[in-house]
Design a protein around this nucleic acid. Structure first.
Lengths: 188, 188
DNA sequence: GTCTATACGATGATAGAC
DNA sequence: GTCTATCATCGTATAGAC
């Protein structure tokens, strides 16, 4: 009965709660109940473990996003649902939170994170195009740029919320974003 | 001749380049040329040192912002200048970057960061009000929310840029934000 | 004020027995 | 596959001499 999964689960938890640098092999062992031998049998080292854990997390987040960007939905609804997706304001984005760490930026971990963002931005861009085609947004709007803005607003919302310990900071950022989108829409 | 300033300077550099957890007293000593004794003579410990360094950084950033939000300027110019302020896209915000770290969130360091954000948000809010008063933005716009959105967009722009190693991600986020603001303005 | 010496736990990993 | 040594190094701090 392999402990591989217990180890990955512990790593996922610690990565989210503490970040990559603070996720030590020892903490993973304590939390998972596995010994040193198991950990280094299944994974080459700390970075490889983090990579496996983050790939699982990334997959889970992709699934959540596919639901939000369901092409059967009205484009403006998709945008609204993206902005107002349930989020753990004070814990931060499971992936985006990690890019503050130098060691993450210098490792392969960064690829998993940037792939997630490009996935989200592509969906946003497509949705903005659909909204334009439906006559819901002005035709001259630069959807590539606005898509980045919206993704950035969410990531920045976490930063504001965490710095103040106040989840409503994220909610206000969301409302501001939606106010701008709606303002553009209602004036077509 | 006190080494206090050398130590603070080294701490400022390391905090920006590596973050708080990675800023070890030993690294500060190496970079500043000071010995252990000097460091612990001038500062109670690592956190106190970081706090002093970040207060200096915060002051510098406040000054830069006062220039951007000069009340003599046209409100829309102030917004534009804020969005397009020169930024080190790949290094991140000297303050905002730190909130990803658990130890930062749990310490007094967080206060310095949140004070900086509330300063920026207040200026943004006031500027948005001025723009409304001048007839440049729709009167029903929720300036408290939009102010958070704009501040968040900048912080998130750093996240996107760092995750991809591509500074233009920040620039696109800025352009998207400006496109939305301008879109609202041109349709009054 | 500055320095060196010393301490002790945590980190990240290897070795080898079961 | 799993476990328990064991290791060198780093991180954070104290003590005490100059």
């Amino acid at each position: 009965m392999s402990k591989r999964h217990d180890i990955i689960d512990a790593a996922k938890t610690l990565l989210w709660e503490q970040g990559f640098e603070a996720m030590s092999p020892k903490k993973v062992m304590r939390l998972s109940g596995a010994g040193q031998g198991s950990l280094y049998h299944h994974f080459e080292g700390k970075e490889a473990l983090a990579l496996s854990a983050l790939e699982e997390i990334s997959t889970e987040m992709h699934c959540a996003m596919e639901a939000v960007f369901d092409p059967a939905k009205d484009p403006m609804d998709r945008l609204y649902d993206y902005l107002y997706m349930p989020r753990a304001e004070l814990k931060g984005c499971k992936l985006g939170r990690l890019v503050g760490e130098k060691t993450v930026i210098e490792s392969n971990i960064c690829d998993v994170i940037s792939q997630y963002f490009s996935f989200a931005i592509d969906h946003l861009k497509g949705t903005l195009q659909d909204a334009k085609a439906a006559g819901d947004l002005p035709p001259h709007l630069d959807e590539a740029a606005v898509a980045r803005s919206l993704a950035a607003m969410v990531q920045g919302g976490y930063v504001l919320a965490r710095s103040t310990g106040d989840p409503t900071q994220m909610q206000m950022a969301q409302e501001g974003a939606w106010a701008m989108i709606e303002g553009l829409s209602s004036r077509i």
